[in-house]
Amino acid sequence: MTQQSLSPSSQPITLAPHDPITLDRVRRPRAPRWLSALPLPLLPFLIFCVLLEIVPVIVLIRDSLRVQGLGAFTFANYQVIADPLFARALGNSILISLGTAVLGAVVGGLVAAAIVSGSERGRRLSLGLVAVTSNFGGIPLSFAFIALLGTNGFITLLLRESFGVRLYPGTFSLYSWTGLTMVYFYFQLPLMILIFTPAIARLKPVWREAAATLGAPDWYYWWRVGLRVMAAPFIAALALLFANALGAYATAYALVGGNLNILPIQIGRYIEGDLNYDPGKASALSLILAVFMAVGISIAYTLTQRSQKWLS
């Protein structure tokens, strides 16, 4: 890293302060005033956001307020949420998303810490495994779990024939909330490791050395420094996992069909169903889901702002 190569002792570089404006004037080629006032490098990003975020969201809001998504103005689409079926779907979705996000973040965070402090070779192998598994989702993932833990799965039959343990019926079912949680956890875990490893790698070894030099035990270092510094990226990652699970559709539908009531499956029925095709209701339910995601993410964002300064 450049910073390290410039300063092997990891001391901050001190440079004589100078006026960046003078520097700009010297370096930059002359351009018309109006052009230089325009933040050109930002333009592609901003145009993209307008075209793919803002306009579609406005269209979605418009559709959610029309009968069938293209008829007359109505608020009726939103009244769907007063139906206990959809209200419970929303509740179930939030519960399983929050649960698997916390589970995935805690376990994944610990694994990331272990990876970072492990050997170089182990790190490469584990990142390879994580990359492969983070690519594993949707229908193939559900099917892999069915082949393992379904009523006729590998582990189910192994337990029954070699150990006389019967998972079905009664003890366990893959097609239950427990099973769905296991499958969600499978796609949350690699994602957490992938996004958290860089963050934890930025814990500056100097701090730990300093703590050790002062005689602080390892746990004390983690408690007073490590956890506090890691709080911001951890919460940010938690929010991402929450959003990731809240929107999961293919995996859940492939595993349990309509047998567990979660909101993305209800939305999917309105978009893809043979029976209740209704883009208006789908839009309304989607926006309701988006509001809950937005709330979760804003909470996370506010929390992360506090400890951000530690890492700069």
Partner: peptide, 23 residues
């Protein structure tokens, strides 16, 4: 920019696809 980059998190894939299709 941070705000604009966070917005897609709040929209599940099904929703995004629906919005883009209809737009």
């Amino acid at each position: 920019l941070e705000f604009l980059a966070i917005v897609p998190w709040a929209l599940p894939g099904v929703v995004l696809a629906l919005a883009v299709i209809r737009t």
